[in-house]
Nucleic acid binder design. Structure first.
Lengths: 214, 214
DNA sequence: CCGCTTCTCCCCCGCGCGGGGGAGAGAAAA
DNA sequence: TTTTCTCTCCCCCGCGCGGGGGAGAAGCGG
C-alpha cells in the first residue's frame, strides 16, 4: 500500500476530534492531516489541504455540516465526504444523499467499522449506516401508497387551521373568499378522515404534516 | 495536592470515551480509572472501582444515563455524577437535577471548562451548563405565578376535549349532563385564555398539560 | 357559622363550522 | 383535443360550540 489516506476532521466538539484522531492514527494507512471546529474553517482547510476525505459533523456553529458538505461538493467534487451525526437520523440526510454525499455514519459507530467505512468511501463506494439506509428507503417507498397527498394550497390552509383564526379571518389573510377557505377545509377533512377542524390539526401534527411553532 | 481525582467514564461512543480520556489524562491531578459502554456495565464498574466521580452519557443502550445515575445515587451517594449530553437540553435534566445530580455539561464543552467542572463537582459544588441552568430556572419560575391551575375534573374534561367526541358524547362517557361538560369547558377556555376548543387543546399540548397518545 | 371552591345542572342566543349540493377558469395530463 | 386536477366562489341547512346569565349541594378552612 503506497500513500496513506489523508483525512480532515471537522467537528465542534474538541473531545470528539481528539477521539477520532486517536482512533484513526492507530491505523498505519490513515493520516489525519488537519482538524477544524466548524464548517467555515473546515471549508478553508479542505481547500488548502486537499485531503482524500473529510469527516464532517452535521451540527456545528457558524456553518453546519450540511452547508459545508454541499459547498465542498460543488467546489472540490473529488474530495470524499463522510457525515458524522448523533444517534438520531436527521431528515437532512435525505438532501445530502440526494446531493451525492457518499458516507453517513452515526457517532456510536465502532472504531473498526469507521475505518472500514473510510476505506469504502475512499475507494468510491457509498457507506450508509443501516438506520440511514432504512430512512432513505422509507422515504423512497411511501411516495406512492397512500401518504395523504394534500395540495400546496390545502397544506397552507391546514397550517392556518391550527391558529385561532376563523375561516373568515383566514380568508382575509390569504386574500380569497371565505367560501374558498371553507371549500379547502372540506377537502382537508375528507382527505385526513377527520370529523372536525380540531381533530384534523391534531392528526396533522401527529403525522408531522405540520408542526407547532412553540 | 495529594491523591488525584479518580474518574470513571461511561459512554457508548468509543471515540468519545477515548477523547475524554485523552483530554483528562493531560491533567496531572486527574486519573481515569475505568471506562464503560453502557449504564449496566457502568454501574458495576462504579461499585467496584468507587471512583470520586463518574462522567455519564445520557443516551446509551441497555441502561441509559438517567437510570444509571438515579440507581447509583441511591446505592453510592458519595460518588459524584456528571451527566454528559448532546447539544439539545433534554427534559430529563429536570428529574436529574431534582434527584441531586450535581453536574450537567454538554458534549461541546471546552476541555479546560470540563476540567474546571470536574473540580467544582468533586469539591461539592454544583456545575450546570448555562443552557441547563436556564431550562431549570424556566421550569422553576412558572410554578408560582399562575401556572393555570385547572381542577382535576377540568383536566379530565380537557383530555376528552382532545378527542373527536362532542360535548354530549363526553358527557355520556363521564356519566354527567352535557351542560356540566359545557360548564367545565367554559371554565377551561377562560383559564387557558383560549378562544375555542381547538386552540385550548393545542395550548395544553404545548405547555405539556396534556400529551397526545400517538 | 360563614365564605370559598368544586362539581353539578339549567336557560338563551348567535355564530362558527361540517356536510350537502353546484360551477367556472386555467393548467396539466391523457 | 378532451379529460382531469386545482383553485376559486356560491347556496342552504343544522348542529356544535362559545358566551352570557343563574343555582343548588358538598366539602374545606377561617
Amino acid at each position: 500500500m503506497a500513500d496513506p489516506i489523508r483525512i480532515l476532521i471537522v467537528d465542534d466538539h474538541a473531545v470528539v476530534r481528539k477521539g477520532l484522531a486517536m482512533v484513526l492514527r492507530l491505523e498505519p494507512d490513515l493520516e489525519v492531516v488537519g482538524e477544524a471546529e466548524n464548517g467555515r474553517v473546515g471549508l478553508e482547510a479542505a481547500r488548502s489541504l486537499t485531503p482524500d476525505i473529510v469527516l464532517v459533523d452535521l451540527v456545528m456553529p457558524e456553518m453546519d455540516g450540511q452547508e459545508m458538505a454541499l459547498t465542498l461538493r460543488k467546489s472540490n467534487p473529488l474530495i470524499k465526504i463522510m457525515m458524522l451525526t448523533g444517534t438520531e437520523v436527521d431528515d437532512r440526510v435525505l438532501d445530502l444523499v440526494a446531493a451525492g454525499i457518499e458516507g453517513y455514519v452515526l457517532k456510536n459507530i465502532e472504531p473498526v467499522e469507521l475505518v472500514r467505512a473510510i476505506h469504502a468511501v475512499v475507494h468510491g463506494e457509498a457507506y450508509l449506516h443501516p438506520d440511514v439506509m432504512k430512512k432513505v428507503l422509507e422515504r423512497m417507498k411511501p411516495q406512492q401508497p397512500h401518504a395523504v397527498s394534500l395540495t400546496h394550497r390545502e397544506l397552507e390552509v391546514l397550517e392556518w387551521m391550527a391558529t385561532p383564526n376563523t375561516y373568515k379571518q383566514i380568508a382575509v389573510q390569504l386574500n380569497v373568499s371565505e367560501e374558498t377557505i371553507r371549500s379547502h377545509a372540506k377537502s382537508i377533512l375528507e382527505k385526513l378522515h377527520q370529523p372536525n377542524r380540531a381533530q384534523a390539526v391534531l392528526a396533522a401534527m401527529k403525522t408531522k404534516l405540520i408542526k407547532l411553532n412553540g
